[in-house]
Design a protein around this nucleic acid. Structure first.
Lengths: 391, 391
DNA sequence: GTCGTATGTTAGTAACTCAAACATACTAAG
DNA sequence: CTTAGTATGTTTGAGTTACTAACATACGAC
């Protein structure tokens, strides 16, 4: 490791400290939290300011002593764009370093295997619009959320059942856009991006994220980092076996978790075709059976999968999100019952089951964050670039 | 991060490069593999040599060009001691940096809840003997392997069913020994130490380690590092549920993996009391039932647990060890059958099922390695210490 | 107004690594 | 036996980086 790497590391350290702080921070505070000395922090902060990554505000008095100079992530200088491709719409969101929305747009269209080019064009249109509305801010990255399995290199969508997509080389298509020349483009699974929103709320924690959307997905977060796995789909436990030889899942196997608790499966069981809210769906199911049994089946199946996962990973926090959020309180007792029965950690600590305070579109927001995130890890690259531009 | 941390990092980088190399390496080779420059490597190597961590041998010609000066981990200068506490014996092993055995001893005694002080005394005796036989080598650490659950801080043994131990503050007991003053003492679960032996064989790989001993345990290895979890028992999947409401496990729950495939459970089923080899045990079981069914039950139960774990962690390699080693080839087809049915990764890559080339006492060797390992992460501390001694 | 306090800056120093040239020691070929 | 070629390892001087110690700054409190 070279000296320049050391600088890069410290630069990133300071940048992240500024980002993670809830309120504006002083240089002195940064020095304390990063373990660096005041002169070092001052120098690094100066670089970040001239590069347009950090903003200085008017001094604020803090009781006695010299007033601090508040530092914040720069607003409106940097633009990260998130795209979300869903079955019936494509959304686009632009944020800056401060995490504020600069601009957003949505187009409604039914995305299928037959209109991939149209979808790509829609993405391009939305990108241009959002970019134009974001003003002066420089685009630093684009990240696309897709509800499906992405190849480990992030190049293409291997399969997205809801979109009926198979092997779509989305990254290449988007990178081919002239407007995106030189801009990094990422493609990532929607749930893995949704979890970023949750991570932002509880930085550096370890937990299991379970999200019910059409299927059931999830992610494992260890000390604020999403576990990747060999193919980049660790935590996708919709096809964990909860009942060997049990109900037929749409993946063709038997006894998968998804066959018991996914929105899709529940809707099939209710015999409904149209989209309804989860509450209505449970209501519908309760007509033929006891509501407690419907909820109990969901809770206990989920509990078994969760318990096994908690055992293997030795975690003690579960966050429920997506359509599981609204019924979280209702199913929690059943999950707890099963987890307490099977999870070893439950003997020592109480397993915490929480619901996620989901935004309207966590995947979209997560994608926008992911688009900005490389900048925070390597501010030096950006500084070098902005320096060369001003030459 | 400060400049001194940079040096510490690079020192450790070079030290580990020397350790991991199968054959003695030259400074030039180290420069290439560590991405450092030749002068830097030379300086760092010099420090490691004077500190007694690395050894220089006579120049060796490598075809054309100046002959290289071979570098190796120093032999007989540093002593790491591993202890293994088992139900019927306590073993002790001393190794040096080169990984060679300097000395080893075993005492046979039945370790129970009633004779903890005796066990500690036996440890002390063994430690003294091994240390005496190791000659000049300086003791740098002690690590104790215990077949049970260890508290997250490594202070005490929470429970060790085979030893009938509960809440034994082993670390404190050992640290109280005058001979161990200033020497770091670790206590760790035996399986988590066994896996270190496997990691040494396949550095930086990711895999699942499944070890059959009295129970069934395991560990998760991600890029050469053992996953810890909140309490330090991630990967302990003996109590994963493979059949909800199934066979009664000795933990009091139902359907645990251990109830189907542990040596303990198999022996109970065979109605045997004495210890027999796994082959004999399977033979015995095959008298009442078909051998294929015995093996099949083991393989399929294990397969289900493995498949669920692989799904959650997105891994594609499984290493079978302990008593599962000898029957690995026999049970592998059944594991594969179940895994192929349930593991998603099996659709893309073939899941690799391997057997560990187990040493006689992997936990003991792992413990000895773990005792030395902190030195490799922080050679600077040791250098400072050895410098102050020679003053 | 003076003191106490906390922030941020300046100047000088120490530590680390790097690039370039050099010294070394061998093989291979004429 | 000499010369060329090659790879290793060292020396030298320079360029980073961050640190320590002292200082300047700007406020509140008495």
């Amino acid at each position: 490791m070279q000296s320049t790497h050391l600088r890069e590391h410290n630069l990133s350290l300071v940048m992240r400290a500024v980002m993670n702080a809830a309120d504006p921070v002083s240089r002195a505070t940064l020095a304390r939290s990063t373990q660096l000395t005041k002169p070092t922090v001052s120098k690094l902060v100066e670089e970040l300011i001239t590069a347009g990554l950090v903003e200085e505000h008017a001094p604020v008095s803090q009781g006695s002593g010299r007033p601090m100079v508040p530092l914040q992530p720069a607003q409106h200088t940097v633009l990260g764009i998130g795209l979300e491709i869903a079955a019936e719409h494509i959304s686009c969101l632009g944020i800056d370093l401060a995490g504020g929305e600069l601009s957003s747009r949505t187009e409604y269209l039914e995305v299928t295997a037959d209109n991939v080019p149209e979808a790509v064009q829609a993405c391009a249109r939305l990108l241009d619009q959002v970019r134009a509305e974001a003003g002066e801010a420089t685009l630093v990255g684009v990240c696309v959320a897709v509800p499906g399995r992405i190849s480990p290199d992030g190049e293409s969508v291997l399969s997205a059942p809801n979109l009926d997509w198979d092997d779509v080389p989305l990254m290449r298509e988007l990178q081919a856009m002239p407007a995106l020349e030189g801009v990094p483009v990422l493609v990532q699974n929607d749930i893995r991006l949704s979890v970023l929103t949750e991570i932002a709320r509880r930085p550096d924690e370890s937990f299991m994220y379970v999200r019910g959307s059409t299927g059931v997905g999830g992610a494992i977060v260890l000390e604020g980092k999403v576990l990747e796995g060999v193919h980049g789909w660790a935590g996708e436990f919709g096809h964990t076996v909860v009942e060997p030889g049990g109900a037929l899942c749409r993946c063709g196997r038997r006894g998968c978790l998804e066959a018991y608790v996914s929105y899709h499966a529940l809707r099939e069981r209710a015999g409904l075709r149209r989209d309804v809210l989860i509450d209505e769906l449970v209501e519908e199911l309760s007509r033929s059976t006891d509501r407690a049994e419907v909820i109990g089946t969901i809770g206990r199946s989920l509990g078994l999968a969760v318990a096994n996962a908690l055992n293997i990973l030795d975690l003690s926090t579960v966050v429920l999100s997506g359509y599981l959020g609204p019924i979280a309180e209702e199913i929690a007792p059943f999950i707890r019952e099963t987890v307490d029965l099977h999870a070893l950690a439950a003997e020592v600590d109480e397993i915490v089951i929480e619901r996620s305070d989901d935004l309207a579109a966590p995947a979209l927001w997560g994608a926008a964050r992911a688009a900005v995130s490389p900048l925070l890890d390597h501010p030096g690259d950006w500084i070098a670039r902005s320096a060369s531009l001003s030459d």
